[in-house]
Design a protein around this nucleic acid. Structure first.
Lengths: 343, 343
DNA sequence: TTGTAGGCGTTATCAC
DNA sequence: GTGATAACGCCTACAA
């Protein structure tokens, strides 16, 4: 049933090498025979077998992207950016997540199949020993997203979390005139949360504001969880110069909603800042002051690095750092040029 | 550099067939030699070459998923469901979109590479002739999501849009007591929008409510567009018994926001209904009455069908229909047991 | 239980 | 310009 290169050869009355030539280096073959072969290909509906091809060429033109999860706007953007760029570069993208099912299994499965992949981009977000181990003696070209792994040198594309969080904090203590800032992070072990917390603490110190352990919460990046937390605390937070700094937009949205539900007005009675600048940020009332993280660009850059490395495995490791950008909207009263509640 | 099966064979002092046997049918080989081979494998870090393997076995254990876009909660859910199920079934998933770049190119690219894929699930959402053509004489096992293609019979998993939209309309004209319903759809050519509009019109007729062309709008499923539209019309809509039926949650959220911004109260001054039940639905104030579309289940079912067909290409085409479910929250005042504004 | 040999569909290296 | 032929790494009768 499957038509192979030799079927085409017979039909066109040439040898298989000639067929192979018109497929790959048509300039080496006579125009007439070329035409004959091409029509044979068309008539037979011949499609080169990718396995045999890969066996010879040792590449599949498929690269992988492994993310902590595929759910939500954030990852969605990365995938989109990566997919788009990968295709531009002539590659197809395989997406996997470490969350669906057992993470190690998931990852290892992808790796077991690795000979089919030309390379992999990995985002870990939390470092487990297993992943660490797997990655250190990884034979396949790979690039790491949003973090760096100890051990072997490798390509990586990073978000300068510190920079972004610091910009936000400066905005809050400066233009917004905040004197108390509540930090609502994701999981305590999450890389991004850690980096943002560091910036938070540092900025507090710089501004000579007191740091209080009890103003720090670790949640799970989800809207509902944040809503619930805020429902409990929002009346206590509501103070002339208090802001909540959430580690992503969804949680910030939950907090805004809880504040509204409690009859408080944002930003008059309480400032709320988000992170990521996903579409939710423009869907709350008021829209969120947040930090734009160039997610799809991160995906795209990852693919560039990866494909470059596939082409030249020897090149020195590259490290790309992407700078987030402060986006001032209304949820912190920034436009008011003073403490946000003095409206 | 790459270690092959014969390296292992040498190291273990056996023939390559023996190595192959411990890899695939370990029961056929003596325990002792088996152990010897296995340790050789481990010591050498041997990984079977997937190309050579595929060349013999004629399968890759990779299946594809082609979506109109990868952006947003909706597709995100489908991908997640599909990915999860695919892995459970022992397959890896390749994701592509027809939107990034030229759609036909994109799709055809995936198809050109198809010998690497064992099968593909496709969601088209709008039918272009090219896609139609490509699909009708598709050699590869495939299943269609959320629609059916004329021509060759095939597996498909459908959302009963009609059922969902009708349930919503019944809810609006019944419990909510709506007398005028504004329809805000996606693109006029979009399958889902078409189906929902049909249900809308039908339900209006059944309820003996007047249909007015000027109460029908076609947008693009985006929050902002809907917000802008609603900003213009919301004061005119605001009537004792008027509801807006948006074709997805994001647009509904935009409409709610516009209403709030205009000083109207939802649902007292205007009812707003969404569709899909994505996370946004719980992030508006008030939360949206909407229709839950089992997206991740659709992805999962698609993979089941696909993998089953890969295993048995001869089986008769199956057609799975998933029923959406009405979710009553507060944006239409349903809980009020009467016209929503009488609060 | 194990080894030998042939073939899967390509591409690459030679000759001609 | 074109055609044999040898890899590529693996699986699987068939033989021993």
């Amino acid at each position: 049933m499957p038509v192979s290169i030799s079927d085409v050869a017979k039909r066109a009355n040439v040898s298989i090498s000639t067929v192979s030539r018109v497929l790959n280096r048509r300039e080496l073959v006579n125009d007439q025979t070329c035409a004959r072969v091409e029509s044979a290909i068309r008539e037979l509906g011949y499609q080169p077998n990718a396995f045999a091809r890969g066996l010879m060429l040792r590449k599949s033109e498929i690269v992988g992207l492994v993310l902590p999860d595929l759910h939500g706007e954030f990852y969605s953007q990365i995938i989109r950016g990566a997919n788009q760029r990968a295709r531009q570069l002539g590659y197809n993208l395989v997406v996997s997540s470490t969350r669906d099912g057992d993470d190690s299994h998931s990852l290892l499965h992808a790796i077991r199949q690795r000979t089919l992949l030309d390379g992999v981009a990995v985002m870990v977000s939390e470092l487990t020993d297993r992943i660490q181990d797997v990655l250190t003696d990884f034979r396949l070209p790979f690039v790491v997203l949003d973090d760096e792994i100890g051990g072997a040198p490798h390509d990586s594309v990073l978000i300068d979390q510190r920079h972004g969080a610091t910009a936000m904090m400066r905005h809050l203590v400066g233009p917004c005139g905040a004197k108390r800032i509540v930090f609502v992070g994701g999981l305590e072990t999450n890389f991004d949360t850690i980096a943002r917390f560091e910036a938070y603490r540092q900025a507090l110190a710089n501004a000579k504001l007191p740091f209080s352990r009890s103003d720090v919460y670790y949640l799970d990046y989800e809207y509902e969880t944040a809503y619930n937390l805020a429902s409990k605390h929002v009346r206590e937070w509501a103070a002339p110069d208090c802001c909540v700094f959430a580690a992503n937009d969804e949680m910030a949205a939950g907090i805004v909603a809880a504040a509204n539900a409690a009859g408080l007005s944002v930003p008059r009675d309480l400032g709320v800042a988000g992170f990521d600048d996903t579409r939710v940020a423009r869907m709350t009332r008021p829209p969120l002051t947040t930090v734009r993280v160039p997610m799809s660009e991160m995906g795209a850059k990852a693919m560039e690095l990866l494909c470059r490395r596939v082409a030249d495995p020897q090149r020195p490791p590259t490290r790309i750092s992407l700078k987030p950008e402060l986006i001032v909207r209304e949820s912190c009263g920034a436009d008011l040029c003073g403490p946000h509640r003095n409206r």
